[in-house]
Amino acid sequence: MTDLCLFCGIIAGTVPSVKVAEDETTFAFMDINPGSDGHILVIPKRHSKDLFEIPDEDLTAVTLAAQRIAKAAVAEFGADGVNLLNCCGADAWQTVFHFHLHVIPRYLDKTKDRLVLPWQPGTPGDLEAIDTLGSRLFTTLDGQLSEALE
């Protein structure tokens, strides 16, 4: 826990929240700046700044908790779908630097759903750039796998 972390304060009970679930590793609570009705945050109890720092076991626990909570939220709120969102770094919209997954119920009824996409899915990208970037990443990941197996 860090003294300056808002989410660590929520876990410690010094910052108020509306808790929806808790287990020995994770804590889930309602987002006070929701993108839709029923927007929930799922966090590890152990502080990790972001996706790059979270230990594997905490990431697994948060992801499984988010899946369980998403199923319950969709059923309970009558949502038409759900988004799981993680923002890693200030330029990727992260504003609280304690790893968290947003569980965002989605609704056809836009009075319940204020979240809009910042890009247009279905708009084709530059296939040559996609191929180049994919090949670069494949080579990097394949090299990491080879090193891990040695």
Rank of each mutant, 00 (worst) to 15 (best):
A79W: 07
T26N: 01
A79F: 01
G81T: 00
L115S: 03
F52N: 12
R114F: 11
P105Y: 10
V96T: 02
V103A: 10
A79H: 07
W93V: 02
L85N: 03
H98T: 05
K110S: 14
R114Y: 00
D109W: 15
S17I: 05
E24K: 14
W93Q: 14
V96P: 00
F27C: 12
K49S: 12
I104L: 15
C87E: 00
L64F: 03
K110N: 10
T60R: 14
I69Y: 04
D31R: 01
P55C: 11
L108K: 10
K110E: 13
K71L: 12
L85S: 09
V20L: 09
H39E: 13
V82S: 13
V42D: 07
H102G: 05
S36V: 02
F99K: 03
D37H: 08
G13V: 12
S48Y: 09
A28T: 12
W93F: 15
M30F: 08
V116C: 07
F52W: 14
H102Q: 00
K71D: 13
D56V: 14
V15Q: 15
E22G: 07
H47C: 10
D56E: 15
P44F: 01
K45M: 04
F77K: 14
R106L: 06
E57G: 00
I69M: 01
H98C: 12
L41H: 12
A90T: 07
R106V: 00
K19L: 11
L64R: 08
F52H: 14
P16V: 01
A66N: 02
G122K: 03
N86Y: 02
E57N: 08
Q67M: 15
E57F: 03
L101S: 15
D23V: 07
Y107M: 12
